[in-house]
């Protein structure tokens, strides 16, 4: 965590994620793993491991109940987040939510950053200077956002099939299952390969970036990873308001534990579903 950085600010920590955001990420980790484990058991039900998991869980009813429980929890998180955004935008009239460096909206700079990043990959130029959110972080966010909306909508359609069929033809339920399953596979593989790598497992971060668990980032890291954001905050003096204590040891250890468990479960599910998919 404390990396050697050419900066006076390397021992100073700043808040990057609020407690609410960290809890939300925790909720998503827990429910996503639960949804993936129970859902993939259904998706690849012909596999031995799926049957064993179903049996261990206590039967199909248990599998489906767990799936629905996690679905309701993650939906609540989703709705809370959307509600929070709307509240901040419409009631608090917060600015910069939908546009600007602190917005999740993809903007021209993201395309430029991607282009420059690709050039950097190929040793053709320097790494782009990132702002508060890098383009892959925005993609992660929107992938989860879109995924929750699509998987959630199709899931509730199937859960309350006869009710939805009052408004839409029943054959949409066939399509709902297809989209639900394929989108889930996309989400599971994306999180367990791309997100794990981009945010935690790549050599610069290995084995994990604890910022989403501790909420704190060291000044040195901040300056190097998000130079535009850092210098803007520094110049405006807003950086001082974000100053924090160093992450306590228990929190760092807790982060490591969560990461090991999540990556462990993720990789097992990744291997099982990957093999099952290609030998289907």
């Amino acid at each position: 965590m404390e990396r050697a950085v050419n900066s006076n600010d390397s021992e100073q920590y700043y808040f990057r994620f609020s407690l609410g955001q960290r809890y939300l990420h925790g909720l998503v980790i827990t429910t996503f793993l639960g949804l993936a484990a129970t859902g993939m058991t259904l998706r690849f039900s012909e596999r031995g491991w799926a049957k064993s998991l179903a049996e261990i869980a206590g039967g199909f009813t248990a599998i489906l109940s767990l799936h629905k429980l996690c679905a309701v929890l993650i939906s609540a998180g989703f709705l809370y987040h959307v509600g929070d955004i709307l509240y901040r935008a419409m009631i608090k009239k917060e600015r910069g939510l939908f546009l600007g460096p602190y917005s999740m909206t993809p903007q021209p700079k993201d395309a430029v950053d991607l282009f420059e990043m690709l050039r950097w990959f190929l040793w053709m130029g320097p790494q782009p200077k990132f702002d508060h959110f890098a383009y892959w972080e925005k993609f992660d966010y929107w992938a989860v956002f879109w995924g929750m909306a699509i998987i959630g909508a199709t899931g509730y359609m199937m859960w309350f099939g006869p009710f939805f069929a009052r408004f839409v033809p029943g054959y949409l339920l066939n399509i709902a299952l297809l989209i639900h399953g394929e989108e889930a596979l996309l989400a599971v593989w994306f999180i367990f390969i791309i997100h794990f790598f981009n945010s935690h497992l790549r050599p610069e971060k290995f084995p994990l970036d604890p910022v989403i668990f501790t909420g704190r980032v060291s000044g040195g890291d901040y300056q190097h990873e998000r130079p535009l954001d850092y210098s803007r905050l520094d110049e405006s003096g807003a950086l001082e308001t974000l100053r924090s204590d160093p992450p306590p040891l228990w929190l760092k250890n807790f982060s490591r534990l969560i990461a090991v468990i999540a990556v462990g479960i993720g990789f097992v599910l990744l291997a099982l579903t990957w093999i099952a998919f290609w030998t289907e």
Binding site: R3, V5, L118, W120, F121, L122, W123, P126, Q127, W136, I193, I194, F197, N198, R202, P203, E204, K205, G220, D221, Q223, H224, E225
Partner: peptide, 25 residues
């Protein structure tokens, strides 16, 4: 592809020493 290239670049970075204005770690 993005991930594979990134991994190769980061590993290459480590072996070739510090790159021009690249990531801080």
């Amino acid at each position: 592809l993005h991930t594979a290239l990134w991994l190769a670049r980061s590993l290459g970075n480590g072996s070739r020493g510090k790159d021009n204005g690249a990531s801080g770690e």
